[in-house]
Amino acid sequence: MSRGRAMAALPPPRSTWDAINPLRLLGELSETRYWMYLLLLPSALLITAIVLFPTVYGFQLSFTEMRLNRPAGNGAFVGLKHYQRMLADPIFWLSLRNTAVWVTFSILIEFVVGLVAALALNRNLWGGKVLAVLILVPYFLPNVVAGNMWALMLDSRVGVINDILVNIGLLQEYKAWFADPNTAMATAIFVEAWHSFPFFTLLIMAGLKGIPTDLYKAADIDGAGAFAQLRLITLPMLRTIIAAAVILRVIGLVNSPDLLLILTQGGPGRSTQVLSLYAFQNAYSDFNFGYAGALSVVMFVLLMLFAWAYIRLSKVNQD
């Protein structure tokens, strides 16, 4: 730094070398306001490369004709063609509705079960540490493993779940859970909830550690029962963490088709067809990347709207 100043104080350069001497120029540069931008450049480039470029490319794709198995005409700008098609596409609307059901009920169950598990584990009961690890196991299973495991357990011929349900008399005969449109979505949601509720457990447990125990003592003395304490202390104190968990999970649920890909592939008869799966099929079995891009953009916009509305409604930003 001091060197930079010393150089700046020198008389004007006398030789041509001085005019292009990189060290001298670098020194001068470090004294200007551009220096800051120069230092930011590497991270800006990185962000541009890994975040901005794919996002912009995805948007651009949605206005482009891009069918990998029909090279002629690819790359042409087609304006809102894909979006117009979408409006008239009954499968899109069905997928949108199914996505709403899939996400809403999955989140609800995951949150409630995750909360109950976290509250139970937070009591430091005997064996709680072992239980805490066990309860997290589902989350560590890859989707593929969890999906295939449940597909097998729910199988209408050899599935152990059917066996149990028939034996305890809840079912008359083995049921093909994923072949009946009335149970396919619910069963898929059950598997999804089983797989991901530990995510809520994990985050809520972390949040619970941050709530001062004095608050519960004070509430005990004030006469608040367990439910009132949950409603008036625990949940409000967890608001930020719950909001973060819900948003992350909604993003995951909206974007990731892998569990449904294994369990149902959208069937039977599209009764579990969701947007992510539809986009996936459009891209990788119809090779229509333009339309798939448009579907992704719609999902992206819906997610942004959801996150914005949710943050506003849950008042996470307050105090």
Binding site: K217, A218, D220, I221, L232, M237
Partner: peptide
């Protein structure tokens, strides 16, 4: 007797005010 039925009141070092109310 449960704390709430002892008819006592307590002031904590941390004050233990309910932050959301």
């Amino acid at each position: 007797v449960h704390p709430k039925d002892r008819n006592i009141a307590m002031v904590f070092q941390s004050y233990a005010l309910y932050p959301t109310m």
